[in-house]
Nucleic acid binder design. Structure first.
Lengths: 207, 207
DNA sequence: CCAAATACTGTATGTAAATACAGTATGAAA
DNA sequence: TTTCATACTGTATTTACATACAGTATTTGG
């Protein structure tokens, strides 16, 4: 790939910024308007050169049909948005999307699996799962729905709060186990609502 | 927000999938083509209803100028692409973007800080940092450039491989310490290249 | 049972947008 | 000095696209 001229870099930056802001690419006329060109041809020429240098893709004849190709975006997979809850008090279905506190956006490649529509994220408070290397402040991504297997980490509703525990089956009976000697152990899982099964974790930077 | 009909959900899903795949929204005709409509009017009608229900935004008259409005996307911040390397043998600047093995895409909200252009990701192999709760298979996000502070986790080039260690200063001298009793401890940091300072972590799902 | 909303067909139209053709000015390379 | 690529102006043309109008089944709610 050859180097871009300063002007070409300006055009490319504008394309990228507009796509971020509006979700779609600007038309040739809009680009011309932004840079004060009186002729749409100036844009056509620039886009031709950008295409020639391999930094954008075009579908000829189509409106707003250009894509920026960066080395990273070639590798980039689909980015999924997962709702982040503070806690999930009661039913799961109702809570979905309404009262999400935030949003965790990760590509399925990094996170190692394809989140379903039942995926959600929780922020961990406390050190109760330190034995499984989950720390205070971590974001955990969970799947709502599937039955947990022995030894998997689950989020359960305990005293109105979503709490992470290990799901263990002992003599045929399911229990929830905290992975920290300071915490109470082995709560019978029958009367508890399992909200989700642990899938992945994000540990944000310390501030 | 009112409920969407099944057909409307299909249309919305198609819009979302196409935008993910192509970076731009399909035109009315393309939507009609996909669903086998013989009239572009069917699409116009659907888009009108989707707009009315508040799930998409439109700019009238403009080609492909529709945006999906989900509660999650309102919360979503900027998604950043961070190059993923297997290891970084020598110079950092040269390696950038060329030989990236993959790409980690996270929003800066989830990851807790704003990655710079010098951010990169490594996949952890081995259990040498288990004392700091970093496991085999984890993705770590690092910043290249800043001087590490005492106790911070760094990636250093040891025997041609990037290895995670804790950076400790003992009696004015910097050392690198493995957080696992099985591993050799306290390597003098002078002759080693510090490639990056730990910022965040992603633990993918086990397969 | 009727009214209203959904889910379309079919044709037509205005315009937004890409493109084509003909030029001009400027700086770098040869 | 010529040549070539960049960086544009100006006008014209074609087509991709959104939209408007007229009409028909099917479903849903009161």
């Amino acid at each position: 790939m050859k180097e871009l001229t300063p002007r070409q870099q300006e055009i490319l930056d504008f394309l990228q910024q507009q796509h971020q802001a509006n979700g779609s690419m600007p038309s040739c006329q809009e680009i011309a308007g932004h840079f004060g060109f009186r002729s749409p041809n100036a844009v056509t020429e620039h886009l031709r050169l950008l295409r020639q240098k391999g930094v954008i893709l075009r579908e000829p004849g189509k409106a707003r049909a250009l894509r920026i190709v960066t080395p990273l975006q070639k590798l980039r997979r689909c980015v999924q948005d997962i709702p982040l809850y503070g806690s999930i008090p009661a039913g799961f279905a109702e809570a979905r999307e309404q009262q999400a506190e935030g949003c965790v956006s990760v590509d399925i490649n990094s996170v190692g699996y394809q989140p379903t529509r039942n995926a959600f994220a929780l922020r961990v408070t406390g050190e109760s799962m330190i034995g499984r290397h989950i720390l205070d402040g971590d974001l955990v991504i969970l799947e709502h729905g599937p039955d947990p297997r022995n030894g998997e980490i689950v989020a359960a509703l305990i005293d109105g709060e979503s709490t992470l525990k290990t799901y263990v089956v002992k003599q045929g009976k399911p229990y929830l186990k905290a992975e920290n000697p300071k915490f109470p152990n082995l709560i019978p899982a029958q009367e508890l609502v399992i909200q989700g099964v642990f899938r992945a974790l994000i540990r944000p930077a310390k501030v």
